[in-house]
Nucleic acid binder design. Structure first.
Lengths: 335, 335
DNA sequence: TTGTAAGCGTTATCAC
DNA sequence: GTGATAACGCTTACAA
């Protein structure tokens, strides 16, 4: 058996020689193209013997298919992002695709740079959870976004944020709250996530419930919330008795502040967050929350990115959310 | 300008034609091989105009370099794994490499299967945090493991587990503990992680402190610990006053159990865990803990995997840990 | 220096 | 159904 010049691996040519058939036949075997049964056997035996594996790079060069998808995600420190990444990766793998992971660190420039990197890599598609409102994406490569709209031709997958906001308001009201508050901090750019507020407010208005909302653009500090909250504490009594926070993360910070101010949760004020990722250590939710269907979001992204005919894709797919109690609401009271 | 047959992207040939130079010259420009200044200018202009990007697949086919590294990790739900993955990915990207992420789900077969997948993909190296004790790895491809030993020729990167165990014992003793306990649950196969116990015990013996330890193989339940602990509670009083848990995760479960039994932490018993990943929501440690240097581990893995001359690699690299109080120890007492 | 041409390991199009 | 052979887009001797 001849060794190739490099320390290199066997090629189809080697398999062909070993099996005593032609190169083309070997290729057909590995592409499930009909071939005489005896030939197939010989090829398979030879491949086995040589430990042959098809070279995806050579194949990709010919077919323009790489069986790999790039995922752009801001960070894996956020449990929602890491859960999403986990599910997307698993889902891709189960379909024979590889995930090229790119961490963008919430940096709009990094996002754009990743796209050119990925472009060089000739991936078959990109799934992106990004913050750059005017990300320049190459129309020639399949793209799916999570929570953000980039272009009407690019499908966006998200949880049903509007419904989530409604659910939160409905729940707080049914749990006996009389005066509601919505708190949000995050990116200024418009995304699906903004609809949480709209859903929340629609219920408040419909039921003629008192409510207020405070929206903070993402400056890195929640201080303004605390200033606001402080102004609304009179005689150690909170003016609001139900708070819907845009995320579980924000809810955690608000709870820490309230504790420090001597306001009890859920006795004095009930809180609902959004995301619904369970704490890894305790297995519990961090707070009562609107749970995002992480797996369904992941599966939908993967399905959409792999669709061959991209002429008639949905521009938006909304996946159902549900409410889960997590100790920051008084479930026994209302329902 | 001629359009290629497919909807395809410009190639070096196109750039060469556009710039009025030869194919080889274009290649040289993109590989930083000396070329006349005026030629370089022309090529760069043409590339810019055509939005040319080099095709990594074609290049990889020639050079046998793919600029991509595969990472095998059990899951991203575990905060330590997701933090590690985040850092490794960022580190790879900063060096112009891509991360092909593979989730193995703690499944030894999946681990092996990933390796063949990755083999096809012709990655330049593999970083693996795996559980399969007899993983068959191809010696021809650079490999670095985290926390496990596969083969003396394969570098293993880990935190200094022995020192971590020592630190935990030293800390508990200096905080006034008289009777120590070590608790561990996890994979049976021998890895660096096992040294936590040895370090802990070495200090206990040296200082002639009373201690016991309970080791559980990973059957999915911590019940036996609780049975054991229960047996050592007399009159609502715990026999041990200092517990070192193999992980923060285990510490969390032990704490939950103790709370349920009416044992107070840290008043009655002090607890130290291992890992030291801060809670994303509160920014705090989950417990007093031995902190693993996640970033350093990531950087070391990346450095080792990219080393060209693989003839003289260390077989083991231990990175320093430190202790961090996290509310489950009585810091004021001892130090 | 710059251009030319021979592969890298596949797939795909032909004749046979 | 099978076997040559020409691409795919690039790197790299080697020739000019």
């Amino acid at each position: 058996m001849r060794m190739k010049n490099r320390n290199s691996l066997p090629t189809m040519k080697d398999v062909a020689r070993e099996a005593g058939v032609s190169l083309g036949t070997v290729s057909k075997v590995f592409n499930n193209i009909p071939v005489g049964e005896d030939y197939r056997k010989k090829v398979e035996a030879a491949a086995e013997k040589l430990h042959y594996e098809v070279n995806h790079y050579a194949r990709g060069l010919k077919t323009n298919e790489t069986l790999s998808i790039a995922l752009l995600i801001p960070s894996l420190h956020h449990p929602f992002f890491s859960a999403l990444t986990d599910e997307i990766t698993a889902c891709l793998m189960s379909r024979g695709y590889r995930n090229i992971l790119m961490i963008t660190n919430y940096d709009t420039e990094a996002e754009q740079k990743c796209l050119t990197l990925v472009h060089q890599n000739k991936v078959d598609g990109i799934i992106g959870l990004t913050y750059n409102p005017d990300l320049k994406v190459d129309a020639s490569i399949p793209f799916v976004t999570i929570d953000r709209h980039l272009d009407p031709t690019i499908p966006c997958v998200s949880s049903d944020n509007f419904r989530g906001g409604q659910l939160a308001a409905e729940k707080l009201l049914s749990l006996g709250c009389k005066s509601l508050l919505f708190l949000r901090i995050g990116s200024d750019i418009y995304g699906e996530v903004n609809k949480r507020e709209a859903g929340f407010e629609s219920v408040c208005r419909e039921r003629q419930a008192a409510y207020d909302s405070v929206i903070l653009s993402d400056t890195g500090t929640e201080e303004p919330f605390f200033t606001y909250l402080k102004e609304h504490i009179k005689n150690g009594q909170m003016e609001f008795d139900g708070i819907f926070c845009n995320s579980d993360h924000l809810a955690a910070h608000v709870m820490a502040f309230l504790k420090q101010e001597g306001i009890r949760v859920p006795e004095d004020v009930q809180i609902i967050g959004y995301d619904g990722i369970r704490d890894y250590y305790s297995g519990r939710y961090h707070c009562s929350t609107i749970v995002q269907p992480v797996r369904e979001i992941a599966e939908t992204c993967v399905e959409l990115i792999l669709v061959k005919d991209r002429s008639s894709l949905p521009s938006l797919v909304l996946l159902p959310v549900h409410y889960a109690p997590g100790g920051t609401t008084r479930e026994s009271v209302g329902s």
